[in-house]
Design a protein around this nucleic acid. Structure first.
Lengths: 242, 242
DNA sequence: TTCGTCGGATTGTCCGACAATCCGACCGTG
DNA sequence: CACGGTCGGATTGTCGGACAATCCGACGAA
């Protein structure tokens, strides 16, 4: 992903004219390199289940199939590897990552740390950050009530959790959370959809916000930890752990 | 698709027949690609101050200077960018990252989240993890007493903080902590050495472990937060923030 | 001043090439 | 049959060259 765009031009502090507060905010151009597009396509394929975990990503074949040069594919694969969506073994190539039990546990534990840290800072967060959480929860519950597609439910649900991390007010933590969520999406993409119980967590998330609004932060933190532990168990069970 | 040859040969997950617990542990070969060596060299140069922040990293010049191909340099630069040590502007190239006040604040805040999470799990951590913290603290205090070089003091000191994150028992969190520390090293490499007050935090760290051993976890967490806030102020002051 | 235009420098992408490495099959020996 | 050696194909890692696209600064005209 590597969001972070938002070109922030420096302010020349040379002296007098430091008054103009960027009249051209809210303007941005879409800069899209071929490497980015290839990486996007590969991500999409992985998350949509077109590429099962463990599938080797051959550079030549991908280059031919996508109509780009091998070096371009290679660079895109490097991005995927950096995001943890794929793994590279020296001289053996890149394959779609196969999450094992340990990594699922790890991702969930790390997620808990980040999200709890965010929740604990609810009171200290800005209004912007809080309203973003509310918006994310609203979008998710709306998707549930609307009976949206599985993919959309997933996306909005995970967005709620990322927004919780956003409460900590640290772009880097949010970036880490996104990376963890990407790995989680990889796992979810492998689990047979029928295997997973339907999303019925709209109430849970609403209750979480209610707790926070009531100032019962510690209860909310405990709640989210419980929620994540349950999710971890669900995933491990669906993965068919012995 | 490509159904045919995709025989799902069982991967060498040692899960099943775990009778033989790896008689060949403690054996590993050093696999070092050219890209890795180039990336290492660039990191070294940045952290040693050979490359000031903001310095453009020209692909052709580096390739010629290091005696490797441009594509190799390019890939190494991608790694550096992924680590946050350098930044890439499309069509403008890669430059050594110039940390601003906001990012310093961000890194410190994120660090605090991770380290506090680790400290809070002191009791739940494994003996291995705890002894690793003790070893790191020991190495640092030893370096202080020994009057080691500035670089060594830095390294051992930061290793202590990473080891604290290790208490959480999550490899991914440790990885994130390492990434944050790398960014911090970049900042420290820019600050004139004379500007920084000498390391006298051996006592602080020893006291931290003492608190943890005494089971006063919350005090230790508070202590580390205080410690990090102070370090942030030191850095910002040395950076010459208004 | 402000606005085109031009040339040089650099990146983004492509192509082709080769050695190194890995993998599986085949084969000979004991 | 088990074991070790050899060989060929497939794939990666690295190289070198090439070209269009883009950016930057300077120069010059309105």
């Amino acid at each position: 992903m590597t969001h972070e765009g938002a070109g922030r031009h420096d302010e020349r502090v040379v002296g007098d004219n430091a008054q103009v507060p960027d009249p051209y905010a809210a303007l941005h151009v879409e800069v899209t390199s071929t490497v980015d597009r290839v990486a996007d396509e590969l991500r999409r394929a992985v998350f949509d289940g077109d590429l099962e975990s463990g599938t080797p990503l051959r550079e030549l074949a991908l280059a031919a199939s996508l109509g780009v040069a091998r070096s371009t594919v290679r660079e895109a694969l490097g991005v995927l590897v950096g995001e943890g969506i794929a793994t590279r073994e020296p001289n053996r190539g890149v394959t779609v990552a196969t999450p094992d039990v340990a990594s699922v546990r790890d991702v969930c534990r790390a997620r808990a740390v980040l999200e709890v840290a965010g929740v604990r800072r609810w009171a200290a967060a800005t209004d912007d950050e809080r309203s973003e959480v509310r918006a994310a929860v609203g979008a998710y519950t709306d998707a549930v009530r609307r009976g949206a597609t599985y993919a959309e439910l997933n996306e909005t649900h995970l967005a709620v959790h990322v927004s919780l991390v956003g409460l900590a007010g640290s772009p880097r933590l949010v970036h880490m959370a996104r990376s963890l969520v990407a790995e989680l999406k990889l796992v979810l993409a492998q689990i047979d959809r029928a295997e997973r119980n339907a999303h019925d967590q709209a109430d849970t998330h609403g209750a979480l916000v209610a707790l926070l609004d009531a100032g019962r932060v510690e209860e909310a933190a405990h709640e989210i930890e419980h929620h994540l532990a349950a999710a971890e168990q669900d995933i491990l069970r669906a993965l068919g752990v012995a």
